[in-house]
């Protein structure tokens, strides 16, 4: 077998845009996931049975079904509800919803790890419950779970490859197209593997740097 990487190097522009597409899906998905995660924990903390039940049900359904099925469901269900979105937007929503369910679980764990005394000190000073959560509990809670959130983000980045199944614009779908045109499967997927690895390592490094900056206060 002779290897011919020229098919890959010739397509560098497509691969670059595919990489940007992957990063776009990952970042947008993570932002939606964080919003859902924090909102879900806020709802759980209100301790009203119906909203709590709905959030818990949401978390369990998402965490116990395959992402591929979820993304198909969103892709075919939204049009029935009259919402027509392109595959990339659909992928962002599916990734965000999926990541959101995991984020709820992770953030909830972080919030529960904050000593009750912190909340009591805030209340005793006259702050309201929502202020105590936002100003006192949230930052230390996010710090406590930042490593878990980071790995979840890496996982979400790699999950974007599944969005190929609905033809969202990202790296794997670009790779598939090059392969279909050139039949150079090994070279194409070898290259994709390398690019994903670099994306993950660089993202991990960036997240660690962001964490050091955002949570720079000294810990006991």
């Amino acid at each position: 077998m002779t290897l011919d990487f020229s098919v890959v190097t010739d397509a560098w522009q497509s691969l670059l845009f595919g990489t940007l597409g992957t990063l776009f899906l990952a970042f947008s998905g993570m932002i939606i996931a964080m919003v859902i995660g924090i909102a879900g924990v806020v709802i759980l903390r209100m301790q009203m049975w119906l909203p709590s039940l709905l959030v818990t049900a949401f978390v369990e359904v998402v965490r116990n079904t395959p992402f591929l099925v979820q993304i198909f469901f969103v892709f075919f269900a939204l049009p029935l509800a009259g919402i027509r979105l392109n595959p990339t937007m659909t992928a962002v929503i599916a990734l965000g919803v999926n990541g959101g369910a995991y984020a709820i679980e992770i953030i909830r764990g972080g919030v529960e790890s904050i000593p009750k005394g912190q909340t009591e000190a805030g209340l005793a000073l006259g702050l309201h419950k929502h202020e105590v959560f936002r100003l006192i509990v949230l930052t230390p809670a996010l710090r406590a779970i930042y490593p878990s959130l980071s790995s979840q983000f890496i996982l979400l980045t790699l999950t974007t490859a599944i969005c190929t199944s609905i033809s969202a614009y990202e790296l794997t779908s670009v790779g598939q197209r090059i392969e279909a045109e050139t039949f150079r499967s090994f070279e194409v997927y070898f290259t994709l593997t390398g690019i994903y690895l670099v994306i993950s390592l660089v993202t991990m490094w960036c997240l660690a740097a962001i964490g050091r900056w955002a949570f720079s206060y000294p810990q006991r």
Binding site: A121, L123, L125, G126, Y217, Q219
Partner: peptide
């Protein structure tokens, strides 16, 4: 609220906010 505005409390575990 009215009562908590008038009464300060000091705890055994200090309960300072670590990120501030």
């Amino acid at each position: 609220d009215a009562v908590r505005r008038e009464v300060g409390m000091v705890f055994q575990q200090f309960n300072l906010f670590p990120h501030k």
